[in-house]
Write a protein that binds this DNA or RNA. Structure first.
Lengths: 364, 364
DNA sequence: ACGCCCATTGAATCAAGCG
DNA sequence: CCGCTTGATTCAATGGGCG
């Protein structure tokens, strides 16, 4: 399969020519089926340049649904089992697309709201300002566990709080907006690079293959190249494809160091408590306590620990014994148990971190 | 048709017993079909009290769709030609509901995002915090022009800018949350009154008939009564219906002066005084005075205020009415108007400062 | 009265690895 | 595929208790 290229042509045919289970993440910005009636003018009588292109016209909801089902099925075939799909739309089409996705077995992970910082006002004053679009993020199958979600990196870049499902991002305007030779916008619905960057940084890794079946002005491919992902773009209109090709050629990938994944506790190699005992970071016979010094345990040479709970002696893993000492079902022994050094109690997780560093295994 | 009552029973049967074209606005909070698998625990091992009620269980998407089509059709019959329908849901169900609405001929006016100020986190760090729910606002028919949308009043209560399609509102917690005899939450999905107030103030008028086919804890009826709308509530569960009945009985309608016809464009208030009203820092019907207690005004539910100047009643923004009361051309209503608390008068600017602090400095 | 600390809680489709 | 073990994981708001 050719990577980092744009296929010009119908997306169904192009998708069917691709090998199955070959892409890691899909971004799709399908026609919105806007169903606009007349033309709209601003209060100053200037005309609003609406999306009235032929590709956005469908005869009926049924025709739009058939189109949706067909591209969703074709996309689903080329997704790896742990790939995820992002679709963007507005109230004109997103409900139909979301229902079709569920019908085809996609498993919705989140709906995400793109809150536009600078939306077009409602000139007639008959509705609320349409100030957002909706993204649906879905796994290929129910129960998919292995999808990519760069939780820690996202949280780290967000004042150390979880990223929410509502994202505030400005429209694509100014220099970022592609213009044609006449200085008019080259594509009517160009998406901001910030939006695609957040998507790709959230749910893909460097080197992953990003598929966009409705490439348009090429935002997804441009951001993929900058973030050192590979891309497969499909676009029916040769003029849009040409504009996207020029745009992508001018992109310089970011330095690899700017994209390396931060160390993640979840991906750090496992170190058994027994290894700490073996390596001498904890001495057999040493005493462990909880943070407040109430529960007590004795370290055994084989890496298990011994406690007395309810006047009954027990031996087992740091986790089991932590749960037993607390009377809870589960327990992370690494953070529950502490050792005393120089009069202060430290969680044994600190010792594990030190051993990881000694072994050069990363994970802090 | 009996108004201001709760019908206990199946909503389809109750709707079919109503006369056609008899309600002005519908709010529907149908089951979300959450499809939860196991149980979920917080990092501290406490159990999350999930929605696992029988009424939220459906055998399949097809069963849920059939249910949706049936209540939508029954609701549509009792809507006046210019009535509008509001439906709330999450990604579990809202796409299916929205598509069914379009299929039945409803005309979507907006989708509106309820951004939760204090959502439950994602404890396992495997997705984005699910921090919003989606509302769909639709007219009964395509091309409906006569629906109610109180554009000027909404704009006036929003710093004189159009209200957007994303609304930041806290969850229903604390005192507002209905409790049963054991002190546990009486209903698992009680909606905040601020959300319903914004809906009814946006798209209905005093005296209008508000229908809620899934009344639950009765938030829509309680807010309807307070805002001097009439209501028809339908609830299947007699325990929920009884709790709602008690709740509604305790509601005192706001003074009519706080709800009379919205002001004209020229009199629209210019600041987010409405936010103070919505959040309960100022009560509709409360009295404002100047620093010396001479001029007097009454707070209205939409964030405008009413005064009598030169024996002539007038309604408008805190600034306009302050100017009118002083006989000056301009006035900063925030420093002119005061509220009395514990025998002392404070400028309403202090309340604004408090709200800003609560919202985190107003920066979103 | 006020501030601080702690416990509780909310429409949630919430794990991964090894044997 | 099943079953067991390991061990990773939370934000804003409310309200009560205490000093």
């Amino acid at each position: 399969m050719a990577l980092d290229v744009i296929h010009v042509g119908d997306c169904i045919a192009a998708l069917e020519a691709m090998p199955p289970a070959s892409v890691d993440i899909v971004f799709a910005d399908p026609p919105y089926n806007l169903q606009l009636q007349g033309e709209l003018k601003r209060p100053d009588e200037s005309r609003v340049d609406a999306v009235d292109d032929a590709w956005d016209q469908f005869e009926s909801f049924a025709a739009y649904d058939a189109f949706t089902r067909s591209w969703l099925a074709a996309v689903r075939r080329v997704m790896k089992p742990n790939a995820t799909l992002w679709v963007i739309g507005s109230y004109h089409n997103i409900f139909r697309v979301g229902a079709a996705m569920q019908d085809q077995g996609f498993w919705i992970l989140n709906d995400v709201i793109w809150r536009k910082a600078n939306p077009m006002p409602n000139f007639r004053g008959r509705r609320f300002t349409n100030a957002h679009e909706t993204l649906i993020w879905a796994a290929r199958d129910p129960g998919a566990k292995g999808y990519v979600f760069n939780y820690e990196a996202l949280k780290g870049g967000n004042e150390d709080v979880q990223v929410r499902s509502d994202w505030l991002i400005p429209l694509c305007t100014g220099n970022e907006r592609l213009k044609d030779a006449d200085g008019r916008k080259a594509h009517p619905t160009q998406k901001p690079e910030a939006l695609l960057a957040r998507i790709l940084l959230s749910a893909s890794r460097p080197g992953d293959v990003v598929l966009d079946p409705f490439l348009g002005s090429g935002t997804s491919a441009a951001v993929a190249k900058r973030l050192r992902r590979r891309f497969v773009g499909i676009e029916r209109d040769p003029f849009y494809a040409a504009a996207a090709t020029r745009r992508i050629a001018a992109i310089e990938p970011l330095p690899e160091a700017a994209l390396a994944a931060p160390p993640s506790a979840r991906e750090a190699p496992r170190v058994a408590f027994a290894a700490l005992v073996e390596r001498g970071l904890v001495t057999p016979g040493a005493e462990l306590t909880d943070a407040k010094g109430r529960a007590r345990a004795v370290v055994r040479a084989d890496g298990t620990i011994a406690i007395v709970a309810n006047n009954t002696p027990a031996v087992g893993s740091i986790h089991r014994m932590g749960a037993l000492a607390q009377g809870s079902e589960a327990c992370n022994g690494w953070t529950f148990w502490h050792v005393e050094q120089e009069g202060r109690r430290h969680p044994i997780d600190q010792l594990r971190a030190r051993l990881r560093a000694e072994l050069g295994l990363g994970g802090e």
